[in-house]
Structures are given as structure tokens and as C-alpha cells.
Design a binder for these strands. Structure first.
Lengths: 162, 162
DNA sequence: GCATGCTCCATGCATCTGCATGGATCGCGC
DNA sequence: GCGCGATCCATGCAGATGCATGGAGCATGC
């Protein structure tokens, strides 16, 4: 009897298989992330600060609510709140009101912030290429991307602990 | 002309392809890690503390030098040093000398530490299965594991920034 | 044998993070 | 229009983290 899952037709993985695949993914990410962080491409910013600037650079109007910034963030809400405060002090982002919701805070990339993001981003992608390209060819990378995309996308449909 | 890379015969990926694959891997790990951390399986420990106990549980004699613990760790050397200090205060590990090197510190799992690792580990792998199994079938997980293993293994051969 | 540079670990200190909480606003039922 | 729980963000505070540095032992050359 097959399980009722939609697009997924192969054999259901065992607990061990899921654990081993997750550990491999986890270790690969940790190893690579540490190398990327050590690479001298970050200027005065940390990876987490750059990540916020990057998210803003992709957003329409280079603006996001604090809430939405927190969605894919590595930080908790209070930490993100203060990180944005520091970025504002450095002139890289500006905070403003959200139309139609007086609780919200809209975070916008300033010109200086956009410049910083572009410069760091350019160096960062070269750094990525240096570490990733020797390991996997184009087809393998496409497959890796597809699998990790699906892994992430599936999380939307799985209920949380609460 | 083909590049001189050994086992890798496919097309060399572009900078864009490496960056997009890395971002997908990165986001998947962050998303999943946050869900795993929220899951109530950790008792009094943090993920990083558990990770140290886990590494020790796999080591011969359940013992590792501080230096080796740091290899795959998420922490810097000083932070790891203090984390181990806390674990020792809690009775989960013991510190001792290293035979033949008076500089070294050998960290050993205590019985209580081994118990804690097993209990948390059991809950943790169930948690992993819950989040991963709905997303990918057994073949896909095996493929994902192979790709991430190779990605990580390749880092040994790539020179660092210094 | 000894000087010199390197490795391993610990510690002072500033900063960052998370937890708990609070204040303001929103949405919804009535 | 009003009450009440939920959402959004900020802040006090304790603890964890990283950077810079220091001290002790090791390894190498001479």
C-alpha cells in the first residue's frame, strides 16, 4: 500500500536514511559556511548583516517589513530588530512606517546600503564559485538545487510543534 | 579544452549556477534547522552542546581532543573551550590530559553525558524524519547525501584564504 | 642545549544573541 | 462601538559568542 503523499512516488525513507542525509547536508553547509565566512569579502559587515541587505536588494522597492525580513532569517525577532537598528546607525538601511498598519516597520535599503550589498555580493559569489565548482559539475549542481528546493518547500506543509 | 579535474567530467558550472545552488542549500538548511531547534527535544541543552556530545559519542573511547572537537564545530576555539567548561560543570563530560602532549585537553563523555546524548538523539532523529520524509523519497535522499558528501569532501583539497 | 617560532588551550572584554516581557495596534465577534 | 485575543515590534537582562591576547608546551635548526 502506498502512502497518500502526492508527487512523491518512491520508497518511503527510513528514519536512518533521513537522519544520515540530514547530517550530510548539515555538515556540508557548516563546512562551506565557515570557509565562506573566513574569506575576506565581508568588509565591516557580518554574514547576518549582509543577508539582510541581500534580502532587501531582492525585494520590490528594496523594502520589506521587519516581520518579512524575519521569515528567512537566521535570527530571532529581537535580535533582528537590533541588527536593523545597527544597520540604520551605519546608514545602510532606513526605517519607516508601513502603509495601513501602524504596528509595522518598513526597512528600506539606502543607496549606501545597496552599494555595499553589490560590492560584497560580487566578491561573495566569486568565493562561492571557488569552493563549489571544483566539487560538482553543472548537472549535479542543478540536481542538488532541485532537491534542496523541494526539501525547503515541503516545510510549508508540515505542521510545527505547536 | 577540459579542465584538469579528476573524476568530474560534466560541464563546468557558471558562477551563477554555483551561487544559486549554494543559496538553495543554505536556505534549506536554515529553514530545517530552525524547525528542528523549535521542536521540543533538547531538554536543557542547546543544539551546539548536543552536537559536541554527539561527536564524542562517535569517537573511539568517547574521547576527543579539544582541537579535534573544533574541527567540525560551529564554534570558534574560545567559545568551544567555554562550552566544554559548561558541559563539565553539568557533569556531562570530563576533561583530562592527552598522552604525549601536555598542551592538549582530552574531553570524554561521562555516563550521564552518554545517556543525555542517546535520549536527545532518539527524539532528534524522529524529529528529522518528520520534517524530511514528506519531502523526498529514499532514492532522492541517497542522491542528496551523495552530493553533499562530495561537496564537503572537496573542501579538503581547496586552499583557504591564507 | 638553547633560541625561535608554532601549536594548543584559556581568559579579559566588548558585543551579540535569546528569553521574557511590555506597549501599541489590529482583527473579529457581538 | 466595544471588548478581547492576536500580531508586531522594542527593551531589560542574563548568558553566549568572537576577537585579541597570553601562557605553556612542542618542534626544529643550529
Amino acid at each position: 500500500m502506498t502512502s497518500g503523499r502526492g508527487r512523491d512516488h518512491g520508497r518511503e525513507p527510513t528514519t536512518r536514511e533521513t537522519a544520515e542525509a540530514w547530517e550530510s547536508l548539515f555538515r556540508a553547509q557548516v563546512t562551506l559556511l565557515r570557509r565562506l565566512q573566513r574569506d575576506d569579502v565581508w568588509g565591516d559587515l557580518t554574514l547576518r548583516e549582509y543577508d539582510v541587505l541581500f534580502a532587501l536588494s531582492r525585494a520590490p522597492g528594496q523594502t520589506l517589513r521587519l516581520r518579512d525580513l524575519g521569515e528567512g532569517s537566521l535570527l530571532t525577532q529581537p535580535s533582528l530588530s537590533r541588527l536593523v537598528e545597527r544597520l540604520e546607525d551605519d546608514g545602510l538601511v532606513a526605517r519607516g512606517p508601513v502603509a495601513g498598519d501602524a504596528r509595522g516597520v518598513a526597512v528600506t535599503l539606502t543607496d549606501a546600503g545597496a552599494r555595499a550589498q553589490r560590492e560584497i555580493g560580487r566578491r561573495h559569489v566569486r568565493s562561492i564559485h571557488r569552493f563549489v565548482a571544483p566539487a560538482l559539475d553543472a548537472d549535479e549542481l542543478a540536481r542538488l538545487r532541485e532537491l534542496t528546493d523541494r526539501l525547503r518547500a515541503a516545510q510549508r506543509d508540515i505542521p510545527g510543534p505547536r
